[in-house]
């Protein structure tokens, strides 16, 4: 009978696992700027890539645990599809971070970048990281929302946070567009492979922010149901 009482509750709260997954994603995203710095300083980023790989494995384990847990739950705080969508998007963030770091190991630029181009690239990287940071906070606030029994005031706080992620993302889009234009404006002075390489880096950074924003959007949706 006691096992029976114990079995009525999930061993680990799927929501807390989701937050853990967000923290792992955040930890991986923390490597974006240091990796970019190391790249331009001609230092190896292999170690960082290994660490992100480890974090990705941990994120995968958490993903499996969340999916398993949700398949057994009868009464849940949020719709299973919503939570699994958030998980999928969080996972896409860490995948994009991994791709970004690995891409940095693929090519060395023939010529040093101009200061304004480099600044834009760093600005884009910072914006992407900021989006991931805000995304993690939004997921953390879901726990408070549940604890408060879906208090309207907490939901409104959550709204502000998700709105901030969306603002960050639109700023990222602007910087990304600027960077794209700048890269293509150098088509006559830059090696085509380098041009393609930089465009790919910009695309990956934008993708990170996009997925972080998708998490925020979904959170906003579920806090209003």
């Amino acid at each position: 009978m006691t096992r029976f009482v114990g079995k009525m509750f999930p061993k680990q709260s799927p929501l807390k696992l989701l937050y853990e997954h967000a923290i792992v994603t955040h930890n991986a995203a923390q490597f974006i700027i240091p990796a970019l710095n190391s790249y331009f300083d001609n230092q190896s980023i292999d170690q960082m890539c290994t660490q992100v790989d480890i974090l990705e494995d941990k994120a995968d384990e958490l993903k499996v645990m969340i999916r398993e847990s949700y398949s057994k739950l009868k009464f849940v705080y949020f719709d299973r599809v919503d939570i699994l969508t958030i998980l999928h998007e969080e996972d896409a963030v860490i995948d994009a971070v991994d791709d970004f770091l690995k891409s940095l190991t693929l090519n060395k630029l023939e010529k040093p970048l101009t200061k304004d181009l480099k600044d834009l690239l760093f600005e884009l990287a910072q914006n992407s990281f900021d989006s991931v940071h805000m995304m993690t906070m939004a997921v953390e606030d879901l726990l408070t929302l549940v604890e408060s029994s879906f208090s309207p005031s907490i939901a409104s706080e959550e709204d502000k946070l998700t709105a901030k992620v969306e603002t960050d993302e639109s700023r990222t889009d602007r910087v990304s567009l600027q960077l794209g234009k700048k890269i293509y404006s150098m088509k006559n002075s830059m090696h085509p492979v380098d041009l393609y390489f930089l465009e790919k880096l910009a695309g990956l950074l934008t993708r990170i922010a996009d997925h972080a924003e998708n998490v925020a959007e979904r959170i906003r949706m579920i806090t209003h149901t």
Binding site: M1, F4, V5, K7, M8, F9, P10, S13, P14, L15, K72, L73, K74, F75, V76, Y77, S149, F150
Partner: peptide, 24 residues
Amino acid sequence: THIVVGSVVGVGVARGVEVVNVGV
């Protein structure tokens, strides 16, 4: 036992806790 179960489910329905199904 059954009252505990009823109470757990009651709080679950009120979105207070997540409750495992697993054929329980």
